[in-house]
């Protein structure tokens, strides 16, 4: 059975909106408890990281299964990661910082976890802006170079999470292992390819 690509994409789009729906439902039912600002910062942060890691899974999945579908949805999933990361930063700016603009600079300089999160977000924004097909064509080889930065963004996000965690590093170890696996897979493939080329020569 083949699912039409359009329908599959639509399904992924709907799936990407589920976290937002969950967050909104929780807000409406005031499920976030007495400190919703903090809780919202936490859940939006977690969803950004999950979606970022999900984006990174797609290329290996394509390679392992041979299904083009996985790279077709890559841009969309990546943009969802950007969307939730922006929401996360907005929650921080509005609810935690209360739009005290003068405090932003101080926070960026003095709280390393903010600096690192911000750097990660900047990369995601750059990747988002250059993600349309026209940009891919225009940038040629440079596009691929730029978009490898997604790994840097993910590493920074893990560092950010480790810095946010105070005593229990379970979450950091969990997400960090997934990222390490994905990075390892890429390096292994590259090594295998160059080794293969060398052998053929």
């Amino acid at each position: 059975m083949t699912i039409p690509p359009g329908a599959a994409k639509l399904a992924v789009f709907a799936l990407g909106l589920v976290p937002l729906a969950l967050l909104l439902a929780q807000i409406i039912r005031s499920d976030f408890g007495p400190d919703p600002a903090q809780e919202l910062a936490g859940s939006t942060g977690e969803w950004s990281l999950r979606l970022l890691l999900a984006t990174l899974c797609l290329t290996p999945l394509r390679q392992l299964t041979g299904k083009v579908f996985f790279v077709r949805i890559r841009r969309m999933v990546g943009l969802f990661a950007l969307f939730y990361a922006s929401l996360h930063a907005f929650v921080w700016l509005s609810l935690l910082l209360g739009f005290r603009w003068h405090a932003i600079g101080e926070e960026l300089l003095e709280r390393p976890y903010v600096t690192v999160g911000f750097a990660s977000l900047l990369i995601l924004v750059a990747l988002g802006i250059t993600s349309p097909k026209a940009m891919v064509r225009r940038m040629g080889r440079n596009w691929k170079r730029l978009h490898r930065l997604v790994y840097v963004a993910a590493i920074l996000a893990i560092v950010h999470l480790a810095w946010v965690s105070r005593t229990d590093f379970g979450e950091t170890v969990f997400h960090g292992s997934i990222l390490a696996l994905l990075l390892g897979y890429r390096l292994w493939r590259r090594f295998a390819r160059t080794a293969g080329q060398a052998a053929r020569r």
């Binding site: 807000i27 007495p34 400190d35 919703p36 600002a37 919202l40 405090a103 926070e107 003095e110 709280r111």
Partner: peptide, 23 residues
């Protein structure tokens, strides 16, 4: 004296509500 993680000049008096926040 700010903590490396948190600014200490204001506080969120709980319970907070997204629409009427007491800072």
């Amino acid at each position: 004296v700010h903590h490396p993680r948190w600014r200490q000049d204001t506080e969120r008096r709980l319970p907070q509500n997204l629409f009427s926040r007491r800072v």
